[in-house]
Lab assay of single mutants.
Amino acid sequence: KNALMQLNEIKPGLQYTLLSQTGPVHAPLFVMSVEVNGQVFEGSGPTKKKAKLHAAEKALR
């Protein structure tokens, strides 16, 4: 199970927000955030999926 699945089991129905998309078309950088218990966690990556995963990993720490 990855961090997204684990976080969804603990806190179902979380909303992930796209904060920014920067970089060239062939190498974009997405920044996504998720709010858990009033705290906002951000993650970035080359795809929205990876950015969401990194945000979930930070939220689980």
Rank of each mutant, 00 (worst) to 15 (best):
A51L: 00
S20D: 06
S20T: 12
N8Q: 15
T47W: 00
T17M: 11
L18Q: 07
P24I: 05
A59G: 03
A51H: 01
H26Y: 04
P24R: 07
H26G: 08
L60V: 09
G13W: 04
L18N: 04
G43Y: 00
L7F: 03
Y16S: 02
K58V: 13
G13P: 04
P12G: 07
M32G: 03
M5A: 14
K49T: 13
V25W: 08
G23N: 03
G23S: 06
F41L: 06
N2G: 09
K52A: 07
K52R: 12
A59E: 00
P46M: 10
Q6W: 12
K50D: 11
L14K: 03
K58D: 11
P28G: 05
T22A: 10
Q6D: 08
L60M: 10
P12C: 04
K11A: 10
A56Y: 03
Q6I: 11
Y16T: 02
F30K: 04
G23T: 05
A3G: 04
L14H: 03
L60H: 00
N8I: 07
N37S: 08
K1Q: 13
L4K: 07
G38R: 04
H54N: 13
A56Q: 02
I10A: 08
V36W: 06
F41K: 00
A56I: 02
K1R: 11
L14M: 06
M5I: 12
N2C: 09
Y16A: 03
L19T: 14
P24M: 06
R61T: 11
R61K: 14
K11H: 15
F30W: 13
L7I: 07
L14T: 12
A51P: 00
G45A: 05
P12W: 04
K1F: 13
E9W: 05
L14E: 01
K49F: 15
M32P: 00
A51M: 02
V34A: 04
Q21D: 05
T22Y: 08
L7T: 00
K48C: 08
N37Q: 08
E9R: 15
Q6M: 15
V31I: 12
M5P: 00
L19S: 12
H54W: 05
F30D: 04
A55T: 06
A3Y: 15
S20C: 08
G13L: 04
G43K: 00
V36L: 10
E35Y: 03
F30Y: 10
S20L: 08
G13V: 03
L29F: 10
A3V: 10
A27I: 04
Q39Y: 09
G13M: 06
R61M: 14
Q15L: 07
Q21N: 09
V40R: 12
K11R: 13
L7N: 02
P46H: 08
S20R: 13
A27L: 06
E9H: 13
V34Q: 01
S33N: 14
